Computed example of a mutant assay.
Amino acid sequence: MNALIKLELSRALRNKKFLFFSVCYPAILFLIIAGNADSTTKVDGTGLTLATYMMVSMASFGALTAVLMGNSERIAKERESGWVRQLRLTPLPGRGYVLAKTASAAVVSLPSIVVVFVAAAAIKHVRLDAWQWLALTGIIWAGSLVFAALGVAIGYVASGDAVRPITMIIYFGLSILGGLWMPTTTFPKILQDIAKWLPTHAYAALGRAIEQSQAPHATDIAVLAVYFVLFAGGAAWLYRKDTLKA
């Protein structure tokens, strides 16, 4: 499995387009959104400045990009090319393939988080305590596993031609409605009610609680846990179904 993880990392690091959109693009988007924001105006209901609020949003968005976009497309194309079938002929267990995909995506997601944080601190002068920076990095990185599981599930349910549009619809839908691109307080009431139950909203809320020096809310943790069980369970079932078809 270690050899497969190294191979996956090597492939990801050679893909310059993927690296740009997963590592650089979120930081650029953060600077565009928070570009003219001052250091005193607060986002309604949070007590956080726009730059501090959007820093967590874009770090979460970057991690989401790395684990969701990378996993879904690679798995769907590998299924069609016969690579997954070849791996089944080796001693590598099925869980090893899924773990290798998740681990490689998680490694790539870490730089996307750090780059957003560096941009926020150096350019927008966001200041937090050392423990908050460390806690934010850890919780956003760990939370991305929820979407890594979703990426695996999409990769097994979609064909190579259909995987990109399906992933993009889910990707942008979760990002926008979950409040990663703009505060949900600007949404109509009905969209705010929907956003509260989306995994992306709960994901970013964990980080914002740390910025506010608070413990993450139990509801947000529960929402993410339920989605992880659903996505991981769905991915496992789809993998077994795909194995039987092969």
Rank of each mutant, 00 (worst) to 15 (best):
A135D: 12
I154L: 15
A121T: 12
Y156I: 01
G35T: 12
E73F: 03
A142E: 07
L50A: 12
F30T: 04
L48R: 04
R74I: 12
L134A: 14
T40M: 06
G62R: 01
A119E: 02
F20V: 14
L89G: 11
G45S: 09
I123Y: 11
G138A: 09
G82K: 00
S109E: 07
R95Y: 13
F61Q: 13
S144M: 02
V23S: 06
R88E: 05
A158Y: 08
Y53L: 05
S57Q: 07
V116H: 08
G94I: 07
V67K: 10
A27H: 05
T102M: 14
G155H: 06
T40C: 00
R74D: 14
K124F: 11
K124Y: 13
G70Y: 04
R79A: 03
G155R: 08
Y156R: 03
V126W: 10
L31Y: 12
S159A: 02
I33W: 01
A37C: 10
S72G: 10
N36E: 11
L128K: 10
M55S: 10
E73I: 14
S159Q: 05
V157H: 11
G35N: 10
V84S: 06
Q86A: 07
I32M: 14
V163H: 05
A121Q: 12
S57L: 01
F117E: 00
T46H: 09
A119G: 04
A100H: 04
S144V: 02
V43Y: 04
D161N: 11
V56W: 11
S144G: 04
S22A: 15
I32G: 08
Q86C: 01
A51Q: 06
M69T: 12
T137I: 13
T137H: 05
T102L: 14
Q132W: 03
A59C: 08
G35K: 01
S104E: 09
G160D: 15
V152P: 09
L89T: 13
A130M: 08
P26M: 03
K101L: 02
L48C: 02
R79I: 10
I140Q: 09
K124P: 10
G35F: 07
A51H: 09
V116Q: 06
T65V: 00
M69H: 04
V43F: 08
M58N: 09
K42I: 14
L50V: 12
A105D: 07
I113V: 13
V56S: 03
T65M: 11
T102V: 13
Y97L: 15
L92V: 12
A37Q: 14
M55Q: 06
I139F: 03
D129K: 09
Y25K: 00
S144F: 01
A122V: 15
T52K: 09
V152I: 14
V98G: 01
G35P: 05
T46D: 09
Y25V: 06
